[in-house]
Design a protein around this nucleic acid. Sequence first.
DNA 1: CGCTAGGTTGAGGTACGTCAAGCTAAGTGG
DNA 2: CCACTTAGCTTGACGTACCTCAACCTAGCG
Lengths: 243, 243
Amino acid sequence: MRDGAILPLIRSLEKRDVLTDPERAALEQLPLRMREVAAGTEMVGEASEPLESILLLDGYTARASHLRTGERQITGLNVAGDFIDLHSLLLKVMDHSVIALTDCEFATVEHKALRALSALHPHLWRMLMTTIAIDAAIQRIWIVDLGRNMAARHMARLMCELYLRLEVVGKARDMAFRLPITQMALADVLGLSIVHTNRSLQQLRASGAIDWQGGTVHIHDWDYLADFGGFDPLYLNMVKRTR
Amino acid sequence: MRDGAILPLIRSLEKRDVLTDPERAALEQLPLRMREVAAGTEMVGEASEPLESILLLDGYTARASHLRTGERQITGLNVAGDFIDLHSLLLKVMDHSVIALTDCEFATVEHKALRALSALHPHLWRMLMTTIAIDAAIQRIWIVDLGRNMAARHMARLMCELYLRLEVVGKARDMAFRLPITQMALADVLGLSIVHTNRSLQQLRASGAIDWQGGTVHIHDWDYLADFGGFDPLYLNMVKRTR
DNA sequence: CGCTAGGTTGAGGTACGTCAAGCTAAGTGG
DNA sequence: CCACTTAGCTTGACGTACCTCAACCTAGCG
């Protein structure tokens, strides 16, 4: 499992730009420490100051913030291939926690090793910085959904987004993907109550656009789903651009 | 006006880290093209591919996304000293537009010049990348507010955020700052209707926490405002850290 | 076989939105 | 100097998307 562990990241980067052989080699030679955690584990605590970044290899993690009332809002979802908390290298103090929504496999990389990478491979470093900018673009879409979209449309767009992000790293195909999380977690993504999340989901099911059973989402009508949710994949920047 | 134009940016960066003299000089020697626009101008269009980045010197700009229904959601506010669309250097295609909410002074810098900077001053470059990460942190707070906070609390937290961000660049002091934007613009920030924005504002006024007249916000009771909104400035990363 | 986590449903409440009207202040033209 | 316009703010009445509470259902598990 150690070999090829970094493949999802490479796939994700190559969706947007060309990796040279030396860059690819540099990534493959990054000193990774392989780890696993069970669903529900807090992987990085709020206000902590990590000395390493996390590369997610399998499963789902969430960036979560907690209010004084005990409520929780998830501000980001990460999938295999995502370099979670690359930004902890820049910001030092975590303004949120990272939680494993499912059982997860991941690798940790010391900040030291990443800084070395930045010195030796400036273009590769720029590609990694680009992933931070893409995360920010995704957050902007979430802001639009939370501010101006009805629950079911918000859910529709999220499903479109997840499908494309998972497809890039080979975790989704044939209009289906694993999503073994609870409706409570989804509610915290959408900023809804569990009850209303359930009802919005039923609305999508009733429309024939998707179903979600046994932890697997099937998209039956992509065109309808994307149109209903107002999904435009531009923000995911899944276009290869020359350097 | 050309001289010292970049001062707000320098102030903003020095709030978080130390600038060496060569770094400071490099910033001051950036080839800037000074410009002004009137309130309401679209400064960068959605789906455009800018070849320069904008450094805001005075006024307010907003990142805005439009829905098919014609509704608008503002996903970010920028103040003097903010390097807007630094990320356009990384992402190429704009996923949103940038709008002047007030009359604005700004400078444009060619991407070419910024790339040169990245090669010559890697640490300075990291500081600029850090501003992207901070933007993302602010967006996460907005997601939390939109998802889980009542309108008046959301507004309270926003006012705290704006005060601190403006104070860093010398645009706010004595618990007051200029905010000559319309309630419609504020509504698009908060994801509310104009009517409800107005009523939430009145609630804050009635509580004695703030008032907002003639385009100037006065914070009468910071402690109450921060507590009511659940404001914790951690996410703004306004702490100087050694490199 | 009982326990538990998670999903589903109904009933009633609330924080919002929408529509419509009236208000104020600044600007414009005669 | 005054009518007129216009953008923005404010208020009331009413509608709705979503929340809360509470119950029940289902499947997995010790």
